[in-house]
Structure formats: C-alpha cells, structure tokens
C-alpha cells in the first residue's frame, strides 16, 4: 500500500502564492468540505444529544425537563416496539441490499461495453429512482391493492390466487423490499458500471496470455478489482436502506399492526405524531450509533481490499 505522495515532488524554490497553494494542497482540499460539514452538523447533533436527556414536546411555555438517561433506558429495556423495529430495519435493509447488489452487478456486467442505444438504456433505467418516492409509493400502493390493483389482476390472469400484499403482516415487509429493489437496483448497477469502466487493462491482458477462463477472469480479476467500488456502493446503499422512510410511510405507515415499522419511521412517529422530542432524540442517537458502527465495519473491509487494489 505504499502510495507515494505527490506532494513530495513539490518544488521548494518558490515562495509565491501559487506555490504556497501547491504546498498546502492537502489542507486546501480538505478544509472547505470539512468546515461545511461541521458547520451544518455540529449544532444539530449537539442539540439532539442534549434533547435526548430531556423530555419536551416543543412547548413555548415549558422548557425541556432533564430526565437523565431515562429516555435511553426506556427504549432499550421497556419498549418492545423499539427492538422489533430494529430487527425489521435490518431485515428490510439486508434483504433489499443483497438483492440490489446481485442484480445490480449482473446488470452492470450486461451493460458494460458499447451497444446500440446504450445512453438511452442507461437513462431509462434511472426512471425508478427519478419519479419521486412519494409518487412511486402512491403508485405501488394502488398496484398492490388486493381488490382493484394491477398485481392481483396479473396473478388472476395466470391462475394464481390473489395475495393480500401490504394488507398482510407476513407479506407487507417483503412487498416493500420488492419496491425498494425495483427503485434502487439501477443506482447500484450504474455505480458498478462506472467502476467497471475504469478498471485497469493490464491484468486482463496477462490473464488472456495465461488462457484464463471467463469464470476465472471474473472471480480472480473483475471481482477483486471491483471490490472497492462494490463495498462503497453497498455501504452507501445500506445507509440509505436503513434510513428508508418515504415509501414505507406512504404505503403502510408502518402497518399492518406494526409489521413494517422501522427505526426511522418509529422515530418520525415519536417526533411528529407523539410529540415526544426527547424520546425521539434518544432513538435517533441510538440509530445513528448503529448505522455508524455498521459503516465503520464496511470501511474496515474496504481498507483490506484497498490494500490489494
């Protein structure tokens, strides 16, 4: 992993401003984004953490009341709804992301290289993620409708019994996974496709000389070379999947019963339907910690692959 630092080549003879810039390129590249992100995040995070130790419903008459850790202990020990939603969140995200990764990789390999109408196809395939989650949720809601919806009409045509879809505790979560896969596989595919296009060529030349089979080339070259991109794409998609809100809230509001309530929708309910800002904040803090933990794991995995790439 010995990456040589281009800054070392920096000529040191000149003291002009441009030169100063060039010598401090690292700082200049880092600072703007760092300042921006911190400026936007420090207060909200601090505020939320502070609020998580309080009880408040936004009242103008009564300021937040300190309650110590009780919001946390309440969630972690006395609220089965929370742990159920945690489990569901992970089930939903895992199911969706794995399907999206496999399908996305397949589609990326398929779309790799020139073909007739490639720009057009690559644009069309974006459609599921462009059509605004709310509208998409409403459209799927109608398509899933067991009595008058399209899906059951299709099933009847091919002689399969109509399904309750979102109206059943067993099927609702997986119906939502289906929508998520439909919506986000294109993004996965396009990121991986972009990754494929910049893979170095030499290893393939060598493999050809050695007479490697296509399968060997895929498993021993493409996959390892693409791994950093795969990990990043999976990481970004996992974060978003864990935070999925729009389609769930539009289509089921967490129902039937609580069968599709995820941590994020529960957090929304706590803030905007129950007006329990302190409780909601503690939930958001825990949720944040969980996702951060998972992300750091991904980053570790990526570092390992990064060494090889």
């Amino acid at each position: 992993m010995a990456v040589s630092n281009p800054a070392e080549y920096s000529p040191k003879r000149n003291t002009s401003f441009v030169d100063w810039l060039n010598r401090h390129i690292k700082l200049i590249f880092i600072l703007p984004s760092l300042i921006f992100v911190l400026a936007m995040m420090v207060f909200p995070i601090g505020y939320t953490v502070w609020l998580s130790f309080n009880e408040w419903n936004g009242s103008a008459r009564q300021s937040p009341q300190g309650v110590g850790l009780s919001n946390y202990t309440n969630l972690l020990t006395a609220d089965p709804r929370f742990w159920d939603s945690v489990l569901r969140t992970f089930l939903f995200s895992f199911g969706a992301v794995v399907a999206e990764l496999l399908l996305g990789l397949g589609i990326a390999l398929l779309l790799q290289g020139k073909f007739f109408g490639q720009n057009f196809i690559k644009t069309l395939i974006l459609l599921p993620m462009v059509a605004t989650p709310v509208a998409i949720g409403m459209a799927w809601l109608l398509m899933f409708e067991p009595t008058i919806g399209l899906l059951n009409a299709l099933l009847r045509d091919i002689g399969i019994a109509p399904q309750p879809w979102l109206g059943s505790e067993q099927q609702a979560l997986w119906s939502l996974v289906m929508v998520d896969v439909w919506q986000w596989t294109p993004m996965m595919a396009l990121i991986l496709l972009a990754g494929l296009t910049v893979l170095p060529e030499e290893p393939y030349e060598a493999a050809r000389v050695d007479g490697a089979s296509p399968r060997q080339r895929f498993f021993y070259l493409t996959l390892p070379l693409l791994m950093p991109t795969i990990v990043v794409a999976t990481l970004l998609r996992s974060i978003d999947a864990l935070k999925t809100f729009d389609i769930i809230y539009t289509m089921t509001r967490g129902g039937p019963g609580y069968a599709t309530e995820t941590i994020n929708t529960y957090g929304y309910v706590q803030s905007f339907e129950y007006f329990k800002l302190g409780q909601a904040s503690s939930l958001l803090v825990i949720f944040f910690a969980m996702v951060l933990g998972i992300s750091l794991l991904f980053i570790q995995v990526r570092r390992r692959w990064g060494v090889q790439a």
């Binding site: 409708e145 979102l166 109206g167 509001r253």
Partner: peptide, 21 residues
C-alpha cells in the same frame, strides 16, 4: 370486507367503493 383491509385507509376504501366492489 375485501382482502387486505389491514392496510386500508380512506383512499383505498373509496376507490373500491367507486369501482362498485
């Protein structure tokens, strides 16, 4: 009632009634 009433709010209910179901 029809299938799937567990996920039914008024927009779906009204649509089913509008369709004469």
């Amino acid at each position: 009632g029809p299938q799937g009433t567990l996920n039914m709010s008024w927009p779906q209910a009204v649509a089913i009634f509008q369709q004469g179901k």
